[in-house]
Design a protein around this nucleic acid. Sequence first.
DNA 1: TGTACATCAGTGAACGCGCGTTCACTGATGTAC
DNA 2: TGTACATCAGTGAACGCGCGTTCACTGATGTAC
Lengths: 249, 249
Amino acid sequence: MASMTETRRNRSLGARERARAEITAAIKEEASRQLAERGAAQLSLRAVARELGMVSSALYRYFPSRDDLLTALITDAYDALGAAAEDALADSRRRTASPPARWLAVCRAVRGWALAHPHAYALVYGSPVPGYEAPQSTTGPASRAALALVAVVAEAHATGTLQPDPGGPHRETGAESALPAELERDAAALAARLGLDLPPAATNALVAAWAQLFGLISFELFGQFTRVVEARDDFFDHSARALGAAVGL
Amino acid sequence: MASMTETRRNRSLGARERARAEITAAIKEEASRQLAERGAAQLSLRAVARELGMVSSALYRYFPSRDDLLTALITDAYDALGAAAEDALADSRRRTASPPARWLAVCRAVRGWALAHPHAYALVYGSPVPGYEAPQSTTGPASRAALALVAVVAEAHATGTLQPDPGGPHRETGAESALPAELERDAAALAARLGLDLPPAATNALVAAWAQLFGLISFELFGQFTRVVEARDDFFDHSARALGAAVGL
DNA sequence: TGTACATCAGTGAACGCGCGTTCACTGATGTAC
DNA sequence: TGTACATCAGTGAACGCGCGTTCACTGATGTAC
């Protein structure tokens, strides 16, 4: 019986299924809207239902709990950010931009999305929501933006334009300029997991640059630049370019 | 009459005043404890009062509202982090460490404090608490940690060991290697406000490094390094050293 | 030193609120024969 | 094509909870003379 239902569902979506998909989408949309207005901690099933003209218990036909709705929003946020990054990458490829220009394009896309969706950004890159543990299913979407950055560097390496260890640390104490063994191991493991052919130093620098990029964005978004940095666009571009240079682009 | 009371209060603290100070401290302590356990959004006046064996309304003799208690916690967090950074700086001076070593020492102190007090860190460097606006009074304590980093660089510059624009961006396109005018202006304004004698490029790089440092710490703390970076201490040290090099140390 | 008065910490009840979740139900839509 | 039955979206009431804040009060501690 179950299998019959399933094959039918796969063959064509009945009216009920379509309605269900639409309402699920409407719930997520309204939840996003409230997320954007009030932030994640303030997200309430009852408020979402109210706004949609439903009774709060009806939402339980679509999401088994508040946390599941939160998970859906987190996944959507990661996906939207990832899509923005990937689009920027694809566009810069179409324009056959140089590796540093591609890097900057992806960085800008990440920042642009963050500025346009500050609460969604805070949801995924801000303090963890208390009492909420992101399930395994979010790790895929979570890595999309990072993978766009990785792709830029991997392509530069493949075409031989990557310059290892530019300036970097330890200029003064040249003796210890090698990557510590533990970092080399981590970098190799990560490269293997991603199917990357990158020198460990570059992989390591890339991870650092990734975290630092989000540091720039978080500080801007969370107000730490108030009365410190005024020319935000210029500052970001300049810093993002420097990050690209730091990974060897 | 008011002036008489005030002069007396200043002359010596009566038993009542001492009791008041002690209980105020106890409230903040308990609130900190709950902050560490549950996070800022979950901080509740009633829970704090309960734990202290008081009735919830009694807290209003000490803090006029929940937000004022939050402000006190934020100030304390900034101050504790600032003190950790300043102590590390003072200690590295005592050891007459090199500028890069001092930089690393301060960075480590910041990270160490963050790892030891993750919720307090999240309170001040994570997503803004929804519906809460930090008052002007927090900006002083907020800058202490940053000023410790600034001091390292300023001292290196004063002794002539600061190397301008090391590696930096634009190696390929040497033409535009100058700092954009807007960034130069921001950097000069900031340096003037802090009474700093630093070249604009160094000031600018310092601000970027400051944001990037917290990016490294936030990613580690907020779980983005899961299954990516395992050797966290080594990774941090390596990255922090690179940041120091990027500002010219 | 003793007394009258002012100050102030802490009490306990109450207000009004919104929340997540459960549950028995109704009625419409889809399915099987 | 028509009928009996199963599925499922949505209802409305309820449970039990915790929250921030107000307010009139009591009783202890401090102050002025």
